[in-house]
Write a protein that binds this DNA or RNA. Structure first.
Length: 897
DNA sequence: GCGGACTGCTTACCT
DNA sequence: ACAGGTAAGCAGTCCGCG
């Protein structure tokens, strides 16, 4: 077999003598050192940390011309601190505190207490280093002070890097300039037209809300820059091929490393091993393959890259690639920690020079998955995400150790390629999302890309407290006065009542208008002034301002912090970014950015209500969440009543939407005017269906748009776990339905659907489907040993897999088929077509089609009855490819009939 | 001992 | 580790049934 051009090139490279410096000399050159920047005209703040050596805050900037990371240590003398309500005298009486080596001094200070709505005296306890405050397992200042009714500690659990950002009111991801040793944000100015359009949006709002919006503008509008980055992926030798090597042990050699730069660099580094063939697997043009006899030299190359690129992108690098490299380098290859440009945390790996972004963590984030990417990928694997977002899959590989060099290289290269591409597609959407979220959350890129939405919102709100000089409340203090809920949830075990789902009126309706409230919950939080400090506020005179369906009252005297923050963001999204993101008249680059901001705001706003009902949120305040849903219920029920008064038939509704049966334009107009006037909320026409088919089931419907495209919600036919054969049959039915224009058309559709079901049944009976077609695909939600209450079917299948030596872990998608006998299921890998329980499948077909057909008022049972009857009388229905069947199986199928 | 009524567990979905 | 509400299938339990 002939070698292609690149292979020749790669082989030629071998005979070029390398000028290699001695290893020890190379290692020494790896020691990371940096000097502070003295001046720059534009650089983007990307990271904040505490530098233990200089005992100061350290900022990292990305300078887009040189593509370098610039450092800047704090020179203001900022120090770590926390607050106590004890006086300096009282604190001085605590011997252990006074003698604490980390204590620097006390300061008297006044901070605003939002919970009590009054200024309050605090003592600022200033420390010499952050670990003195907290973070060590014992002996920290925050643990020394006795926690009594008086004698509490505030703000001791904020990481110092965040504390510094909040105090300096810095925003990560923003452009800054440094001149004469002075750091300042790059000024941003809107174009006059934009300025006018935006001020019009807020013309009827309070000054406070306007001020918030004004502060958001530069954060949301300032330009971003292309971030120079490298994707890194490693392959490691394993003893057991099915198991992932232990990154903390790092016992085995690193066999291959791919480094793909956004600058066009495409390197694959291979470790030479005896007896390995080069092979003839092709790699893309321009990939350079480098072969190393010595693993240490290979590592030196990795480290040089980690000291060169401002951003390093991995997929699971926190827990694998960088962790493995670190331990391998330290434990087996004789590198000192000073020579390894990686720092390991408990759950993350960071870099001494640049910023490490682990895409696994970012894509795993449920908010990102759902709101930013619309659930386009369903599994959190590089393969699944890559396939869904950029259409590139991983290469297949059976055994790393048996692979040729070129095969290994191609495999490893592909992984790095997907990783890099995931940060590049859609004009670097992912990098820009991380940037804009960091700006909004005031969080370093490293944290934004790793943490969840509750941390983003926490950080944003904390920064706001510092800006206005308010003490950040202790979670237990919020809970003490505002911890109880008054409504009862419908679902057992939930804390409070949620949204209303209107009982659908079953049937087919032509010309259905779907109206919904724009950003319902954020609108409520804005309009009704909801915030932890305003709900159940301390003022007697506010107690009559009651939230419907609850005993809670809301402050009438002061605007709540979260109401302002969420309210201003909501208005900017609903009235500016949402439409701009869709505006085809804008330049591509402009619209692309509006789209990024729109996505980011969507993620934040969608979670803004939920966090108040979540214990892990540091400002957890259940009455805020409860009041939000209560007002939501009030809004939708009142709107339905008004619709009915206007003579409009409401056939369905869920949380923030109502489905109206062929309303006249003037009726819609009167209704939306009414909600604007009476509820102060915007009700918009969201969708128009040519017809909608509703069954009696909530959250289950099918809507056909005028252009024939179809909305399917909640139906089994499109669920992930549904077997492929059924999804296809369902799809056929949907196609038929999408062609229905008038009531008369349903007659023909009915015939066609009958055919589809019949074919499905016959093919099942004749075993014409493949096992893959028949497989249910169910996610293993937790590790197998943690199922203690019941043994679901997918677990039974998973157990059989483990017995067969195939490891299953939490998060795996288990594929199984239903078979005769006990336990009734078999994993796809172990099953054969002859044992498939056709009857069970037929039941499943029935219930899947039932969901739609009883909506259409079609007698599905009749169709099914006929189909079954035909087979009962032995009428054979020819299909495309008839298959011979044994008589007994025929019998078995009939038993239930 | 067996099956129907019931509850609870689990997953996947909707807003 | 943002929330609650809903559907569906199955596992497990209780109880009646000569």
């Amino acid at each position: 077999m002939s070698l292609d051009a690149y292979l020749v090139e790669a082989r030629t490279q071998e005979i070029v003598p390398r000028r290699e410096r001695p290893i020890e000399q190379e290692k020494l050159s790896l020691q990371f050192k940096t000097e502070d920047a003295t001046e720059f005209s534009e650089a983007f703040l990307v990271s904040s940390s505490y530098d233990g050596e200089s005992k100061t805050a350290l900022l990292k900037f990305y300078e887009p011309v040189s593509h370098k990371v610039l450092s800047l240590h704090d020179r203001s003398g900022h120090q770590p601190y926390c607050f106590s309500d004890l006086s300096t005298e009282e604190l001085s009486g605590i011997g252990q505190l006074i003698s604490h080596p980390g204590l620097d001094r006390f300061e008297k200070i006044t901070k605003y207490d939002l919970l009590r709505d009054t200024p309050a005296q605090f003592t600022k306890i200033v420390a010499k280093d952050p670990l003195a405050i907290g973070g060590r397992p014992s002996g920290c200042i925050r643990d020394i002070i006795p926690q009594n009714s008086k004698g509490k500690i505030w703000e001791a659990d904020i990481p110092y890097r965040d504390c510094y950002i909040y105090d300096e009111q810095l925003a990560l991801g923003m452009p800054y300039q440094l001149s004469d040793g002075k750091l300042s944000p790059k000024p941003y100015k809107l174009m006059q037209q934009e300025e006018e359009a935006i001020s019009k949006i807020f013309e009827n709002e309070s000054q406070e809300l306007k001020d918030h919006a004004d502060r958001w503008i530069p954060l949301l509008q300032s330009p971003t820059t292309e971030l120079r980055r490298v994707a890194l992926d490693i392959e490691v030798a394993t003893e057991i091929p099915t198991r992932l090597p232990d990154a903390n042990e790092a016992k085995q050699q690193v066999l291959c490393v791919s480094l793909l730069g956004s600058d066009g660099t495409r390197r694959v580094l291979l470790l030479e091993r005896p007896g390995v063939e080069f092979g003839d697997v092709r790699l893309p043009q321009g990939v350079s393959i480098e072969r190393y006899e010595d693993e240490v030299r290979l590592f030196i190359e990795i480290f040089k890259a980690l000291l060169d690129y401002p951003f390093v992108i991995t997929f699971n690098g926190d827990n694998f690639d960088l962790r493995y490299i670190f331990h391998r380098a330290e434990n087996y290859l004789g590198f000192s920690r000073a020579q390894i440009p990686i720092e390991l945390g408990k759950e993350s790996a960071t870099l001494k020079y640049g910023v490490h972004i682990d895409l696994y963590k970012f894509f795993f984030n449920r908010s990102i998955q759902i709101y930013a990417f619309g659930q386009r990928y369903k599994e959190n694997t590089l393969d699944s995400v890559g396939e869904a977002l950029i259409g590139v899959q991983k290469l297949k590989m059976d055994n790393l150790l048996k692979a040729s060099y070129s095969e290994l290289a191609a495999y490893c290269y592909r992984d790095a390629q997907i990783t890099l591409e995931l940060t590049r597609f859609d004009d670097s959407l992912v990098m820009r999302l991380i940037t804009i979220l960091s700006r909004i959350a005031r969080m370093p890129f490293e944290d934004t890309s790793r943490q969840g939405v509750s941390r983003w919102i926490r950080s944003l709100v904390y920064s706001e407290h510092r800006r206005i000089g308010a003490i950040i409340p202790r979670s237990e203090d919020i809970l003490a006065t505002k911890g109880v809920t008054a409504t009862e949830a419908i679902i057992k075990g939930k804390k409070y009542k949620g949204a209303i789902v209107v009982q659908p009126k079953p049937g087919v309706y032509f010309n259905v208008s779907v109206l919904d409230f724009a950003s319902l919950y954020p609108s409520i939080i804005k309009k009704h002034n909801l915030s932890y400090e305003t709900i159940l506020c301390p003022h007697q005179e506010c107690r009559s301002n009651i939230v419907p369906d609850t005993p809670h009252w809301v402050c009438t005297k002061k605007r709540g912090l979260s109401s302002l923050i969420i309210g201003s963001l909501r208005d900017l999204r609903v009235k500016w970014y949402k439409s701009k993101a869709k505006d085809k008249t804008l330049l591509h680059v402009t619209r692309s950015w509006y789209n990024v901001v729109n996505q980011a705001l969507k993620v934040i706003l969608n979670a803004s209500y939920g966090v108040f009902g979540s214990e892990i949120f540091s400002l957890y305040c259940p009455p805020v969440a409860e009041a939000t849903t209560a007002i939501g219920r009030y809004a939708i029920t009142e709107t339905i009543k008004e619709a009915e008064r206007l003579g409009i038939e409401v056939v369905y509704g869920d949380t923030d939407s109502i489905f109206l049966r062929s309303p006249r334009p003037d009726q819609i107009e009167r209704l939306t005017e009414w909600t604007a006037k009476q509820l102060g909320m915007e009700l918009d026409v969201d969708k128009l269906y040519r017809y909608a088919a509703l069954s009696s089931r909530k959250k289950n419907y099918l809507g056909v748009f005028p252009d024939g495209s179809v909305d399917i919600k909640g139906l089994t036919g499109k669920k992930r776990n549904t077997p492929e054969f059924l999804k296809k049959a369902f799809e056929d039915m949907v196609k038929t339905l999408s062609g229905v224009q008038t009531e008369e058309d349903f007659g023909r559709a009915r015939q066609r659907i009958r055919e589809i079901v019949r074919t499905c049944y016959v093919k099942l009976k004749n075993k014409e489907y493949t096992l893959e077609d028949l497989a249910f695909n169910v996610m293993l939600g937790k590790s197998p040993d943690r199922y203690t209450k019941t043994t679901p079917q997918h677990l039974k299948a998973a157990t059989q897999l483990s017995s067969a030596g195939l490891e299953v872990v939490e998060g795996d998608l288990i594929s199984y088929v239903k078979v005769y006998g006990s336990p009734g299921v078999k994993p796809l890998q172990l099953a054969s077509i002859n044992e498939v329980d056709t009857d069970k499948y037929m039941d499943y077909v029935e219930s899947t089609f039932d969901q739609v057909l009883d909506a259409l008022g079609l007698e599905f049972n009749e169709i099914l009855g006929i189909v079954r009857l035909e087979s009962f009388f032995g009428i054979t229905v020819p299909t495309r490819k008839p298959v011979e069947r044994e008589f007994e199986e025929e019998e078995e199928v009939e038993e239930t009939g």
